[in-house]
Structures are given as structure tokens and as C-alpha cells.
Write a protein that binds this DNA or RNA. Structure first.
Ligand SMILES: [Mn+2]
Ligand SMILES: [Mn+2]
Ligand SMILES: [Zn+2]
Ligand SMILES: [Zn+2]
Lengths: 152, 152
DNA sequence: ATGCGAATCTGCACGAATTGCAGACAAATG
DNA sequence: CATTTGTCTGCAATTCGTGCAGATTCGCAT
């Protein structure tokens, strides 16, 4: 079992290029940069965070454009938008079915796998048409659990 | 089995009064009104929503005071704060362990019970100290599923 | 009852996150 | 290369929530 763990990313930049053109959306340098930043992104960045990363490689890119592109990707289902932390949305390049552990101290999110998540017994779903279930494990990451003073 | 289903509310106004005084917090008419509004509240109101309800009975109460009181209650563990919907926090007077179904069309939240939620197998929790798990079942409420046009 | 000090209330300014808008600009297409 | 159409940027506006300060009130000890 030496196979590397599979990690799901947002689709390749080239695939997103095709998908955008197919919808009549243009493929600009700004969008290509974001495609590249998102592909292989391990975290759960905010729009501001991606804006900061993008600005390093393309000074002058606007925050407005970052939001625009992220919203387009989310509308196309190429990106998940998470509403787990207060105040701001997290964008998840991992579009595979998965769940999250959230540190209640620093807010960090990490991917987890919950095999039985879609087979949970649920009481109280009368007059409701469920599509999918998401699980959040709250707790403390090791740095926060170790630190005497809360981190952040 | 004719017993009514148990519904967990935030503690009685009288109990909250004691709890507040015990912490050196004063019990004002504004706070007592909010205690009453929250007790027995079936939904998952926003601060603005509670402000609207409170304003009917006490015109002139300020939104700032509503936030202040809700934050105090949350800090004392007498109220849950949910970050499930985009943009705004939901306050949950039901402090019993429970989970939620969320209509992805209209945003409505309802309580559900997930008996196995705390015994889920989770892969990927290395270097993490879990406290509790929360489950969100996404889907459509019947009105939204029935409507040709999305509600809201 | 009265008075005092600490906590609270309200109104407003401010901050963070996100969207609306408009004119300059660039991608796609033939 | 010219045209069309969508995009980019900057800025205003919006929404949710918090910081602040002065007037007010609560809770407790006279
Ligand atoms: Mn994820
Ligand atoms: Mn609830
Ligand atoms: Zn942490
Ligand atoms: Zn609905």
C-alpha cells in the first residue's frame, strides 16, 4: 500500500478554460491565474486570502475580480463555498464529497472523511427532501490545544 | 405513547435572571423581554429578527442591546450561535444536543435528531482534539420543492 | 426610602465582507 | 483587423456586527 493518498483538487486550469468558454465566459489572465492558484490548493482560503496570493503574481488585480471569478466557479459547481466560520465564506477547491474538522479556537478547517455520513439515521425530516449531508467535527487543533494562551 | 414530544428551550426567564445576577450582570427590562422572546422560540432567528420582535413590545429598544444580550447569553452557554447560513448568524434557543436540516433554496433551518452523530467514524483527525460533531442535512423544504419558481 | 457606583442603554461612527455600477479595456470570432 | 460582447478596475453602496461615550438605571448598602 505505497500508493499516495488521493487528493481531490478543483479541475485542471485547462479544463476550466474549456468549461468557461463553453458557457460563453471569457478566459482572461486574471482568471487563469486564479485557476492555477486554486488547483492544488490544500486549504480553505477566503476571497481576501486568494486576493493576496494572486496579487503577488499579478500586482494590480482587483479584489472585485477575485470575487467575480470565485462566484462564477461556484455557480458552475467547480468550487464549493463553505459557510462554517463566522463573518466570511471559505472556498473549497476540493469538490469531492468530504467533511471538515474545525478548530474552535483559531478557525482552521481541515478535510476529513466520514464514511457513514450519507447513511445516517435522521429523525425529523418530514416534509423535507434531503440531498446531501455535511458533517463538521468541532474541536481544537494541536497547536491550539497545546498553547496556554489561545492562538489568534 | 401519547406523551408530547419534548422540546428543549433556552432556560426559563427566571433562571436566566439568576444566572445573570450571579455573574454581576444586571437584569434590565430589555434583557427580560429578550429572555421571554427566546424562551419557547421554535425557530432560529437572526439578531435583526429578534430586534423586530422585541420592537413590537418595546418600541425604542436598540439593535445594539439585542446584540449585546445575545452575545452575553451565548458566552454563558445559554444560547447556541450557528454559522450555517451565509451572511448572518442564527441564534438557537434550543441548547440540547441536536442537528439541523437546511433548505438550500429558502435558507430555513429546522431541528433534527441524529442518534449516531457522536459515534461517527472519522478519518483524518490526527493531531486534532474533537469536542462535538454537528450534522447539517441539506435539501429542499416541501414548499420550495413544490414551487415551480424558487421561493424567496 | 436614599444614595452611590458599576453596569447598561442608546445612537452613532466605524470596520469587515460583499455586491452594484460604469466606463475603459480586452477576448473571441470571422 | 474590426466588431461584438464580456471583463476589469475603482469606487460607491450595503449588510452585519462592534467600539465608543454620555445619559441612565440597576443592585446593593446605608
Ligand atoms: Mn474541504
Ligand atoms: Mn436548532
Ligand atoms: Zn487551532
Ligand atoms: Zn425552502
Amino acid at each position: 500500500m505505497s500508493r499516495l493518498a488521493k487528493v481531490a483538487f478543483v479541475r485542471q486550469p485547462a479544463e476550466l478554460t474549456v468549461a468557461f468558454r463553453a458557457k460563453g465566459l471569457k478566459v482572461t489572465p486574471q482568471r487563469q491565474l486564479l485557476f492555477r492558484l486554486l488547483h492544488g490548493h490544500e486549504g480553505h482560503p477566503t476571497a481576501e486570502g486568494l486576493f493576496a496570493e494572486a496579487s503577488e503574481q499579478m500586482p494590480g488585480i482587483s479584489l472585485r475580480t477575485v470575487y467575480q471569478t470565485l462566484n462564477d466557479l461556484a455557480a458552475m459547481g467547480e468550487l464549493q463555498v463553505l459557510h462554517i466560520t463566522p463573518g466570511t465564506s471559505r472556498f473549497d477547491p476540493n469538490v469531492e464529497s468530504h467533511h471538515h474538522a474545525k478548530c474552535v479556537s483559531c478557525g482552521q478547517l481541515r478535510d476529513i472523511h466520514v464514511p457513514q455520513a450519507q447513511q445516517l439515521e435522521v429523525v425529523g425530516l418530514h416534509d423535507f427532501h434531503p440531498s446531501h449531508t455535511s458533517v463538521v467535527v468541532n474541536g481544537l487543533c494541536t497547536p491550539c490545544a497545546t498553547a496556554t494562551d489561545p492562538i489568534q
